[in-house]
Amino acid sequence: MQDRLVLLGLGLASLVLAMLSLSVGSGGSLVVLWQSSELVKDLVVDVRLPRILGCLSAGALLGLGGLIAQALFRNPLADPYLLGTASGASLAVTLVYAAGLGALALPSVAQLGTVLAAFCGAWLALGLSLLLVRDRRHGDPDQHVTLLLAGIIVALVLGASSDLLTHLRPELLRYRLAFTLGQTSLLGWDAVWQMSGGFALLLMLSSSRADVLDALTLGHNTAASLGFNMAREQSRLVLLMAACTAIVVAHTGLIGFVGLLAPHMVRPFIKGMHRSLMLASALGGAFLLSLADLLARTLWMPREIPTGLLTAVIGGLFLLVLLKRRS
């Protein structure tokens, strides 16, 4: 019962925040929604509304991915970018920009666009990580640690490749930086449909795996003794987590801390198991990212700060609070 209240509360908070964001513009204008001027309608419908809805869906995906990551790796500091997906997406985007600007000039590659590139790059990096752990014993209770290490290796290597590319072609630096900082300013309606559709699908699929996540909190061996096929479940969870990340990263770049924080934010208030936690974490993530986006648009009006910068600041502050509470 309390869980339902918490979920409702989170939902309402996100809605109120969304309404507030809709009425505040980065041009320094407080727009009253029922003004019927043509320009206001255009502004709100074309620019602001998809951006806010995009933030809600992206935040929800990150919150969901973060929860799965933390349960999968049994680590409270896990975030959904852990298996090299971030570096893979970053490298792919840098390559596409390299192909589009200057010497390489392969038009077909450039036309592919950075959205598709980031999506594919994330999956390829995940594939690499999985490839590295492929020949491990299936019953290995520490397989998640091996997977984590493989992810770190892939992230380092792909990151170094991106660094090398930007060193050889310094004009790519600002594009790579923009991607790494993460930005919500480019979210249009196509991004909204893709992310919200993706979220609905992934939430459904993840809810069916909620039992496994519950069991994993008791440890690998206990979970195995409960009858789960740990190898298969782990692969499923990894794929779910990667899917959440890939969709978001394709549209917003690398927005950090939302996936890390959202589960921690909601865990003290949710008494139930992962089934409720999933939705709560998603709503928490949606709220966090929308808040960061609102601040990013309004703090230094009329300039906009990359949203990823703000999530890092908010994230740092939240972690400080959590740390204080633990001690």
């Binding site: 980065s26 041009g27 620019v47 600002r174 300039r303």
Partner: peptide, 13 residues
Amino acid sequence: GDLDDLQWERLKA
């Protein structure tokens, strides 16, 4: 602004 942080709403206006 510039291409990295364009003020979309002002541009639209």
